[in-house]
């Protein structure tokens, strides 16, 4: 049997907001350890991997591994109906019928909303996403997630509006990370220097560079990843010319959300 409870819907609402516009379907794998979710976008440019350990839930019971594919657009719609302080229960019954039930209960007025989602295919087992040692990456940038979101917004407002193919070039050079994009009649560069101030120790921008690196990405994807800021105060961007870039948000000791993105090969 699978039975999970979260006393505040916020965490799950934020997770869905952070993935549902880019990924249409995800593989949800529940095991004794927790929930692992993976999804790839239809153009196979981006991949998302989420881990929420059992400790992230107020109640977690999963006595048999269960894997289910779920439609994220439908789930996001349902979760938009949930208030932040609603109690969420996730249940799948003993007979493993291909349905999972999400219940939202308002602690104030006792109103209960029940949503059943049919499985939409599944991988059957969690996908094996390779983990690469830190040494494989040429540069690593850690910054406040709100700052990263602000940068993405600025770049998007300057880049050709309506052009889905706006490219952002991320370059790391010594103690600077540059974000560059081209608009219709000009270019825009945002330079972030390494900072670590005494008065704001929790909001540093840290740059670790082994080699200079400069990679092009789809701005649309990066902009969408920046929604992970609701889940964590910090984002870590790992860059390599030989591997997909990783944008990682750690979720308060209980897991993470990692977005992987292929760089664009410029003609």
């Amino acid at each position: 049997i699978l039975e999970l409870r979260l006393v505040q819907a916020t965490l799950f609402k934020n997770v869905l907001e952070a993935i549902s516009d880019l990924f249409s379907k995800a593989n949800f794998d529940f095991s004794g350890t927790g929930l692992e979710l993976q999804a790839m976008d239809t153009s196979h440019v981006a991949l998302v991997a989420l881990l929420l350990r059992a400790e992230a839930f107020n109640h977690y019971l999963c006595d048999r591994d269960l894997s289910m594919g779920l439609n994220l657009a439908d789930m996001a719609k349902a979760f938009r109906c949930a208030n932040n302080d609603d109690i969420i229960t996730i249940k799948a019954e003993e007979d493993w019928s291909d349905t999972v039930t999400f219940t939202f209960e308002s602690p104030e007025d006792g109103e209960i909303s029940i949503f059943d989602f049919d499985f939409v295919g599944t991988n059957g087992v969690p996908l094996e996403i390779p983990e690469f040692p830190e040494s494989e990456y040429q540069a690593k940038v850690r910054m406040p997630s709100a700052k990263f979101m602000r940068i993405c917004k600025k770049l998007s407002s300057f880049g050709d509006s309506g052009d889905r193919d706006t490219v952002v070039i991320i370059s790391v050079d010594k103690e600077c990370v540059n974000f560059f994009t081209r608009g219709k009649t000009g270019t825009s560069t945002i330079v972030c220097r390494q900072t670590q101030t005494v008065d704001k120790p929790k909001e540093p921008t840290l740059i670790e560079m082994k080699e200079q690196v400069s990679l092009a990405f789809d701005l649309r994807y990066m902009n969408s990843f920046s929604k992970g800021s609701t889940l964590s105060d910090q984002v870590t961007i790992s860059l390599s010319s030989n591997l997909p870039a990783v944008f990682e948000y750690k979720i308060a000791e209980t897991g993470y959300i990692r977005y992987y993105m292929l760089p664009r090969i410029e003609e």
Binding site: N27, M40, L47, L127, E128
Partner: peptide
């Protein structure tokens, strides 16, 4: 599985 194949292809694309 097809998904695992897609994933392996993804990591070999760079």
């Amino acid at each position: 599985t097809p998904m695992q194949n897609d994933l392996e292809e993804f990591f070999s694309m760079v």
